[in-house]
């Protein structure tokens, strides 16, 4: 015996006889009529002539309504996604340590919890969720940007989502300023003299 050939719908991915139960049924039918007219005839033509009973009619009506509602919802979601912007913020924690904060992921069909796990695995770092924002330890803004773009394209088929990178500088402490100045003097890159408070007193 040979294998069964099943025709799958390009629009909804279901076997074509299940298109009716999909939220994109109207588009499915148009696709089938154009690409597989024989199958379309078989599935839909005699149905229109046939006397359909009340129950089937009701089911069909409710399916139509569901389809419309879904279409509206999809449209709005897509608009929201295209208008939104992901912000990757680099925060200086100490002189050398940085963490990054990713904002604006919640409008996309991504699971933050899973994403956080994925990040910590992939980048071998700590990642946590704080008020719908992902916080990662480490200076990873560039890597994350590439990864997020790729992810959105693969998972949601979205291209050209705006990703903005910002850097939040930490205020330097007195000691660091002093150390910096001292280093500058030692290197001869600065002629300015900076005397630490203590040394001032001694003098």
């Amino acid at each position: 015996m040979a294998l069964v050939e099943t025709l799958y719908c390009k629009i909804c991915t279901f076997p074509v006889d299940f298109c009716d139960y999909n939220k994109k049924a109207t588009k499915c039918k148009a696709w089938l009529e154009e690409n597989h007219p024989a199958k379309y005839q078989e599935l839909y033509s005699n149905k229109e002539n046939e006397d359909v009973d009340e129950k089937t009619k009701k089911v069909e009506e409710s399916l139509k309504k569901m389809e419309l509602r879904q279409e509206k919802k999809d449209k709005k979601e897509l608009e929201d996604q295209q208008n939104s912007k992901i912000i990757i913020k680099t925060i200086e924690r100490t002189k050398r340590k940085r963490s990054i904060e990713i904002q604006g992921l919640e409008v996309f069909p991504l699971n933050l919890k899973k994403l956080s796990k994925k990040f910590s695995n992939k980048f071998a770092t700590g990642c946590s969720i704080v008020d719908n924002k992902l916080v990662l330890q480490g200076d990873l803004a560039d890597d994350i940007e590439i990864f997020i773009n790729q992810l959105l394209k693969e998972e949601a088929g979205l291209d050209d989502i705006k990703v903005e990178k910002v850097v939040a500088k930490r205020k330097k402490t007195e000691e660091e300023l002093a150390a910096e100045a001292a280093a500058a003097i030692a290197n001869g890159t600065s002629t300015a003299k900076y005397v630490k408070g203590d040394e001032n007193k001694k003098a």
């Binding site: 991504l110 699971n111 899973k114 994403l115 994925k118 695995n121 693969e154 998972e155």
Partner: peptide, 10 residues
């Protein structure tokens, strides 16, 4: 129901 590509470990 909730399976997505993000679940893949390797």
């Amino acid at each position: 129901k909730k399976l997505t590509k993000q679940d893949i470990k390797g």
